[in-house]
């Protein structure tokens, strides 16, 4: 047996070498191109899941019904292991819809994965709005629509945005799975490095995915500060505990 310490050092050196080699970064299969793919396979499902789950959650929270149905549907995406979702995405994309391998299987997977935290948090955030506040708004003669748009939504916005941030990080970090089904993105380096016994490439891919996820987290945190109404800032993370709970 080789001393594990020696191997670890080798791996670190290899990783550094791979990451600093210009050839790793350029070309249609370099880090830059793969990062763009990664962004794309994360953004499409995240944006679609937001478009579906946030309005659904907000409306369900406002009317205080449909929660059970919505939660049941969206929870499926979380209760089922991501790998099984990928299998489902693969079948859906290739067999049912004929959309091929490289892009859609992982996009479907991440879409289903993203529904639950977005729906549950949107619902909870709106429902938990201070009843006194709503009573005051209705007492002033605001229509239900105005109550929703001018009171409930702003009050709920920090929690919803936190859910978006946490979901985005999860989507970005799960996207490498797609490489198992012949997909692109940064996961390619991990799978290819593993297959080619190229530790530098494999661990380099791991580092890149982690950095990518941190950048996404950072970017959305900045966005939160701009979008959330001033007085409501700061109550975000405490209220969004639900977002991190899996299959809750």
């Amino acid at each position: 047996m080789v001393a594990p310490g020696g191997r670890l050092m080798d791996a670190i050196v290899e990783t550094f070498r791979w990451l600093t080699d210009a050839a790793s970064w350029t070309g249609p299969r370099g880090v830059l191109a793969r990062s763009l793919e990664h962004l794309w396979i994360s953004l499409v499902p995240l944006a679609s899941a937001m478009a579906v789950a946030i309005p659904a959650g907000v409306l369900a929270g406002h009317h205080r019904r449909g929660q059970a149905v919505g939660a049941a549907i969206s929870n499926l995406g979380r209760a089922v292991p991501s790998l099984a979702l990928l299998v489902f995405g693969l079948l859906l994309s290739v067999r049912v819809l004929g959309l091929g391998f490289s892009f859609w299987p992982i996009v479907f997977t991440l879409f289903f994965l993203a529904l639950q935290p977005l729906f549950t948090n949107s619902y909870t955030a709106v429902r938990e709005a201070d009843p006194a506040l709503l009573e005051a708004a209705r007492g002033q003669g605001l229509s239900e629509r105005d109550v929703l748009l001018a009171v409930e939504l702003p009050v709920a916005s920090p929690v919803i945005l936190t859910a978006v941030r946490i979901t985005a990080v999860q989507v970005v970090a799960t996207a490498p799975l797609g490489a198992l089904a012949a997909g692109g993105g940064l996961g390619r380096f991990i799978i290819d490095g593993f297959g080619q016994k190229d530790d530098g490439q494999m661990l380099g891919g791991v580092v890149l995915v982690a950095v990518f996820a941190l950048l996404v987290e950072f970017a959305i945190t900045r966005l939160e500060r701009r979008v959330v109404p001033g007085p409501l800032q700061g109550r975000t993370d405490a209220a969004a505990v639900v977002a991190t709970g899996r299959a809750n």
Binding site: L83, V87, L90, L91, V94, R95, L180
Partner: peptide, 19 residues
């Protein structure tokens, strides 16, 4: 069984491989 089911299952097998 269809090839795709097999393809799908092989994704699972791949992970098992890694483990």
């Amino acid at each position: 069984r269809s090839h795709l089911t097999v393809a799908a299952l092989s994704v699972v097998a791949l992970l098992a491989t890694a483990c």
